[in-house]
Design a protein around this nucleic acid. Structure first.
Lengths: 136, 136
DNA sequence: TCTTCAATTCGTCACATAACGAAATATATG
DNA sequence: CATATATTTCGTTATGTGACGAATTGAAGA
């Protein structure tokens, strides 16, 4: 994937563009600017079903925008590092960051994530399991 | 839409990302680097039904990436100019350009468009009308 | 080994979207 | 006004996608 990369740049690009065309994925990606996050923390941020969040993160990973690391039973995601990315990845990340700079939702997410980070990840997961989720 | 633009930057961004997550739209957009193009020329490039191309161009326009200009009975599209765009637009265009720099399809499209431009737009349209299109 | 639990995968549903052709619209031209 | 023609809009169909819950996987811990 990095040895030659000469022809189907378009497909790589489209995968990135698709990954970035969903609000939940963009919010998750931007939240990772803080640093590595556990899936359960992203679940808490987005307030979506674990399976949904898992799929979102998987798409971001496939596009090459984030990296995953499993520690014990928790999966941690972080932004793709400069040395890992193909240049397009880094450019894409910069693009999202600048394009969403002044967004209200993202600002709210920062505060929300600050609150989430105050709890330990362990308690977070247990809390969520017991939590009622009664909407559609 | 341009008077203040303070809060829902995310929606604008998502519209752009969605517009850029389809190969036909990206190809059309990149073809416009040459300069303004008539819809019939884009139809010839992509080899899609006129109605399909029209919809694609409409989405690109909605996202703010291209501008339309009607001259006589022909619709011409061009890239959004620096002074027109919100900054995000220009950044997005630059991003697509750099990300697809080395793509084969795009290279082919350049040659293909050169061939198309050798014909006059008028003959192009009439040709296409008579042309058989027997695939799905 | 059995249990626990975080995360993922799978199946399903509702809805979005890309493709087409047909019909409508707009703009010359007879 | 009627015709021709470029483009758009509309309706339909097939496929893609996001959401969920249920079942599965994998890593600790009893």
């Amino acid at each position: 994937m990095q040895t030659e990369e000469e022809n189907n740049t378009l497909d790589d690009f489209l995968a990135i563009a698709k990954a970035l065309s969903d609000p939940s994925r963009v919010r998750a990606l931007l939240a990772l600017r803080r640093g590595e996050l556990c899936v359960c923390q992203i679940i808490a941020l987005l307030d979506l079903a674990p399976s949904t969040v898992s799929r979102h993160m998987s798409l971001l990973k496939q596009a090459g925008l984030v990296k995953g690391r499993k520690e014990e039973r928790w999966m941690h995601y972080r932004l793709a590092k400069p040395e890992t990315g193909t240049g397009i990845i880094q450019a894409s990340l910069q693009w999202v960051f600048m394009a969403t700079e002044k967004d209200n939702t993202i600002e709210e997410d920062k505060k929300r994530m600050a609150r989430i980070l105050r709890q330990s990840p362990e308690s977070l997961c247990k809390t969520r399991t017991k939590k009622r989720k009664g909407n559609q």
